[in-house]
């Protein structure tokens, strides 16, 4: 019987010490794994919200190259290359402060300060997802995604605004 164990054994879990990101383009990287160089590899997060450190590398033809359980264990330079690409593929500004949330008909107009600057966006009432009781993901009506990494670190005024929708 080919059980789940066989399928797990087939997963290629990579040792971060033997992985080196040598180059980063907009959304692809060149990666050296166990001495072998792969070009235009697409890094993808299977769990972008719950375990953003977990990354799978895919070749151009979507064939899987391997899995990194925690990319933060890569060397400094590789990590910087990879983060640059991941920040493009997963553009999720970090909300630092909520300046206001106003209701307009069925939507809510947000004004927030993020790590990428101040931004306006609109959401429906069910727009918030809480991950592990700490992280908050906000979805706007056009598909934009914003993140509060640790709700407990938000200032009181922002928390008060946020409580309207939680």
């Amino acid at each position: 019987m080919r059980g789940l164990k066989d399928w797990i054994a087939q997963l290629r879990i990579l040792d971060p010490k033997r992985v080196k990101i040598v180059k980063a383009d907009v959304d692809v990287v060149d990666v050296e794994i166990c001495g072998r160089l792969y070009h235009n590899v697409k890094p993808r997060r299977p769990f972008p919200l719950t375990h953003p450190e977990y990354v799978i590398f895919f070749k151009e033809d979507d064939e899987e190259v391997g899995i990194l359980r925690d990319y933060r264990k890569l060397d400094k330079e590789s990590r910087a290359h990879l983060e640059r690409v991941l920040n493009v593929i997963y553009f999720m500004p970090q909300v630092k402060r909520i300046l206001s949330i106003n209701t307009s008909g069925w939507t809510y107009k947000w004004l927030v300060e993020t790590d990428k600057g101040i931004v306006n966006f609109e959401t429906w009432s069910r727009c918030i997802r809480i991950i592990k009781g700490k992280k908050v993901i906000i979805y706007d009506i056009h598909g934009g995604v914003y993140c509060i990494n640790d709700i407990s670190k938000l200032d009181t005024r922002s928390l008060l605004w946020l409580s309207v929708l939680m």
Binding site: L4, W7, Q10, L11, I13, P46, Y54, I67, R69
Partner: peptide
């Protein structure tokens, strides 16, 4: 574990569409 979830999805032919 995360690997068990991914392996189960692969065996169920679901990993590709999920990713």
């Amino acid at each position: 574990t995360l690997e068990e979830i991914i392996a189960a999805a692969k065996a169920a032919n679901a990993h590709e569409f999920i990713m």
